[in-house]
Design a protein around this nucleic acid. Structure first.
Lengths: 235, 235
DNA sequence: ATCGCTCTGTACGTTTGCGCACACATGAAC
DNA sequence: GTTCATGTGTGCGCAAACGTACAGAGCGAT
């Protein structure tokens, strides 16, 4: 019934890929390729920013921490973005938690080097600010989505987002993790997932999820999906 | 039982006030002082950015629009900030709605002049990016707050925020408006407000609100209030 | 083959908030 | 003072989600 797929295309971070050749060449020596593991915490609120990460195929979850009991995912970051917006805006510390949702590679640069590079005001700066903007839009929209839409729709939305970022209909995510992302009970996810499976839109087992009917799932998802999906295009 | 207070201190926008004298002098000719009226819409999602506004004593509500039925306030902007973050990040259009919550004065600058000024990379740019960062943090935190906390706590939070920005315990806000901000029913606000009044924390009548026990209200409010309150300090 | 951990399913009462509908109160306008 | 718009109060029934608890299912490890 289920099949694990771990194959991985070697697609680089899009922001870096968009840089002019010269700037890219000059920049590369500053970067170090790192491999990040699922569950790893890249940042905690209040923590000093040491590194900026540009995901290749790793998937990062950005989470607002309210207190011990409450935390809520506000954005999902893949190769279209980067971790460390705060540094680009002149802040010294993170305000959110960043955890690895799916293991993979990323390019990492030291905070100081990053800031210096931005001073030059080149293409990197432009890309970084541009992304910052769409990240803000994403966060704001997700906020409203979490406020208004039912768990089932939000779950569909979230699964589709992951699919798009991962580039595959198969990925791993437990109900527990999803519940933390959507800010609901684990049982709430189980129930919603159950309903989606009953309609043959998805299939899952012990953390392995498969989208079996993407088009159908899109119909169930709230319109927020469409909005967030290509938010980086319409900025 | 109730008293309208319309007196208004002439306090300038803090971001502009923080600029070095020389930069401030050079910049001022570009600005035009405008008076904004309650309910006025400064920006709609998708609309081209023509002007950037730096509030003096006007209060702006930043709202994410999901669809015809659903909209949610994600931030409240007073003289510590400005409207038009998108422009500073290189975007040409707004992504959110900005409405005037309380009438007052602001300094306005054309989008082109604003962008050119930012190119210089002076103190204004630093201030602008810095504020962008705290705005993001505010939006993210508000998102979580809206997800987890009860209406009553959020209402208390929201009233205190307005008080701080207005600099007075008296201001005008109808239940209807508050309901749109918190993304709940009007009746939900009425009920919560009722409860707060029963405890002698606030008083109100037909749009006029008075905080009669600020300390008490703070206890009722979620901790988010403390966080958002001076978010601009700890950035 | 069994144990044990993690993940998923089910259940139950409770709370919060929703949608709707309508009554009442206030203050400004005439 | 009467009228009228706007703001506030109340009262339903209902749906969604919560907190909690526990039972079964899958899979790896010994």
């Amino acid at each position: 019934m289920f099949m694990k797929i771990e194959g991985r295309a070697l697609v680089p971070n899009r922001m870096l890929a968009a840089l002019p050749r010269a700037e890219y060449q000059r920049l590369m020596p500053q970067f170090k390729k790192v491999r990040l593991l699922a569950g790893q915490v890249l940042a905690e609120p209040g923590e000093r920013i040491k590194y900026i990460y540009f995901p290749d195929d790793v998937l990062i979850s950005l989470v607002t921490v309210v207190d011990k009991k409450h935390a809520l995912e506000v954005a999902l970051i893949g190769r279209e973005g980067f971790i460390g917006v705060a540094a680009a805006l002149g802040a010294g510390a993170f305000t959110m938690r960043a955890t690895v949702e799916r293991h993979g590679g990323a390019l990492r640069i030291g905070a100081r080097a990053f800031r210096q590079e931005l001073q030059h005001g080149g293409a990197l700066q432009r890309e970084v600010l541009r992304y910052t903007h769409s990240l803000m839009a994403q966060i704001a929209h997700t906020a409203a989505c979490n406020r208004f839409h039912l768990i089932e729709a939000r779950l569909a939305h979230r699964l589709l987002l992951t699919r798009d970022r991962v580039g595959s209909n198969h990925f791993t995510l437990t109900h527990e993790l999803l519940s933390q992302m959507l800010g609901v009970r684990r049982v709430g996810i189980t129930t919603a997932a159950h309903a989606l499976r009953a309609r043959n839109l998805i299939d899952y087992s012990r953390g392995n999820i498969a989208i079996t009917n993407g088009a159908g799932l899109e119909k169930v998802a709230c319109t927020c999906y469409m909005f967030v999906k290509d938010i980086h295009g319409k900025t």
